[in-house]
Amino acid sequence: MHFMKSIAAAITLCCALGQAAAVEVAGVKLDDSAKVANKDLKLNGAGVRVKAIFKVYVAGLYLPEKKSTVADILSMDGPRRITLVMLRDVSSDDFGQSFITGLNNNADKAEKTKIINQTMKFGEMFQQIPSIKKGDVLTLDWVPGSGTQSTLNGKKIGEVLPDIAFYNAVLKIWLGDNPADSSLKPQLLGSSKGSGA
Rank of each mutant, 00 (worst) to 15 (best):
F126H: 02
D141G: 02
Y62H: 03
K114S: 15
V90E: 07
S98G: 03
L152H: 03
M120V: 12
V25I: 15
D108M: 00
Y57N: 07
R80G: 14
Q149R: 15
I164W: 03
A197R: 04
A59P: 08
E24D: 15
V25K: 09
W174V: 04
A8F: 09
E24C: 08
N117W: 03
L17F: 12
S98E: 12
V48Y: 00
G18T: 09
S146W: 01
K112E: 09
Q187D: 04
A46L: 06
A34D: 04
S192R: 12
T119E: 15
D163Y: 04
A20R: 09
Q19A: 15
L175F: 01
L171K: 05
P162M: 08
M125A: 10
S68H: 15
I129L: 10
G158I: 13
D94S: 13
K133G: 02
N104A: 14
A110G: 03
T139C: 02
K5R: 13
V56G: 00
G145N: 06
E24A: 11
K55C: 00
F54W: 14
E65Q: 12
F54S: 12
V56N: 00
L43I: 00
V48F: 01
K5D: 12
K55Q: 14
V160A: 10
S98D: 13
V58N: 02
K121F: 04
I53V: 12
T12K: 11
K193Q: 11
A8L: 15
A37G: 03
S182N: 13
L175Y: 08
T139V: 14
T119C: 05
I157T: 06
L188T: 03
A37T: 07
M86D: 03
P130K: 11
V28R: 06
K155T: 13
E24V: 12
K29V: 00
D77A: 13
V23Q: 15
N105M: 11
K121S: 15
L61N: 01
V56E: 06
D163P: 03
S150G: 07
A20F: 05
A21M: 15
F122N: 05
A21H: 10
G135N: 10
S183Y: 12
D177M: 05
A169N: 10
V23H: 11
N168M: 10
T69W: 09
D93A: 08
A180C: 04
L30K: 03
L103S: 01
V160C: 07
I7V: 15
K121I: 01
D136A: 08
S131D: 11
F3R: 15
G27V: 11
I100V: 14
E111V: 14
V170G: 04
K42V: 15
D89Q: 06
K66D: 00
F95K: 08
V170Q: 01
N168Y: 07
K121G: 05
S195L: 12
Q97Y: 02
S182M: 12
